[in-house]
């Protein structure tokens, strides 16, 4: 039967996570949409190819969800130069890396968005990147013969993002600018799920259409404090203590084979809470309210 009215795109985080399947290519924006990331872990997905950088990537690796990583940067922070679970899994040969660089990744995402077999990029010429990632091809540009790198499409099956607000029809607004690669990840993906601090009315979208950063996301998930322990501009700052505790636990597991704290972290914050609200209860209202911006 044909629908008689425009369909809303609001889903809860558990339904939205069901769009993902093991083996898919998943892209994670910044700040990481942690409510969705935690659902991926809770559901026990495996063999994912993950386009991400930083500690959300590390958490997915620690939880055993990842087979392949597309990342230009997996830094740790908090006194650790490299994300601990990432480092260990790569050194052990447990996960594969599609080695790239920021400009190269953006180029591959752009090629996917424009349905092109490749796009050229100069950054990386002269480096080892084309040797250690054979998908990157050195080419002579047909116009002037310059040496460039042909970057193939990098195409997520599903992109997961966090933003400030969206209306029920998937019109998304970021506050203080979209995340680093968010728009690239959205344009390249088959489907985009955006978790937001709040749902706004469609009238609010129409009052200022220039504020729409992503038109027609496929799903919108209501997730106040959903980026925790990361920040959400306009709402809260990063929870340094929480992130530091994670890095400490992940580091102990990766470097000293003491995995108790990491296992406890994964159980307490990712596997046991059934919903985002259950997660927030575990973090506690006091901690959440202490993360004010001003």
């Amino acid at each position: 039967m044909e629908p008689t009215e425009r369909q809303q795109r609001i889903f809860d985080e558990t339904d939205a996570a069901a769009w993902v399947e093991s083996g898919m290519t998943i892209a994670i924006g910044s700040p990481p949409p942690m409510a969705l990331v935690r659902q991926l872990i809770r559901r026990g997905f495996s063999d994912l190819t993950v386009i991400d950088s930083g500690l959300s990537l590390d958490l997915l690796i620690a939880a055993g969800c990842v087979r392949k990583v597309v990342s230009y940067y997996a830094g740790g922070g908090f006194g650790v130069a490299v994300a601990p679970s990432f480092r260990r899994a790569v050194e052990q040969g447990e996960i594969e890396v599609w080695e790239c660089e920021e400009g190269i990744l953006a180029t591959g995402l752009q090629a996917a968005a424009q349905s092109l077999p490749f796009l050229p990029w100069r950054g990386g010429v002269g480096t080892s990147l084309p040797q250690i990632n054979p998908d990157l091809k050195i080419m002579a540009d047909p116009i002037s013969g310059e040496t460039l790198i042909a970057v193939p499409p990098v195409k997520p099956d599903v992109t997961l993002l966090h933003a400030a607000a969206a209306d029920p029809y998937g019109n998304v607004q970021h506050l203080g600018g979209p995340g680093w690669l968010d728009l690239f990840l959205h344009r390249a993906a088959d489907r985009t799920i955006v978790q937001v601090e709040r749902i706004i009315a469609n009238e609010d979208t129409r009052a200022n259409p220039w504020a729409t950063t992503i038109p027609s996301a496929d799903a919108v998930v209501r997730s106040p404090y959903g980026a925790h322990p990361y920040y959400s501009r306009g709402f809260y700052v990063q929870d340094q203590e929480h992130l530091q505790a994670y890095v400490k636990a992940a580091n102990a597991a990766a470097r000293d084979n003491r995995s108790d704290d990491l296992a406890r972290y994964l159980a307490t914050y990712c596997r046991e809470p059934a919903t985002h609200a259950d997660y927030l209860e575990r973090v506690g209202i006091k901690r959440l309210l202490s993360l004010y911006e001003y």
């Binding site: 997996a74 130069a81 990029w121 950054g123 990147l129």
Partner: peptide
């Protein structure tokens, strides 16, 4: 395993 190239290949180019 290091952290990865970040944006250094493009910037230094």
């Amino acid at each position: 395993r290091g952290p990865g190239p970040v944006g250094t290949a493009t910037l230094t180019t």
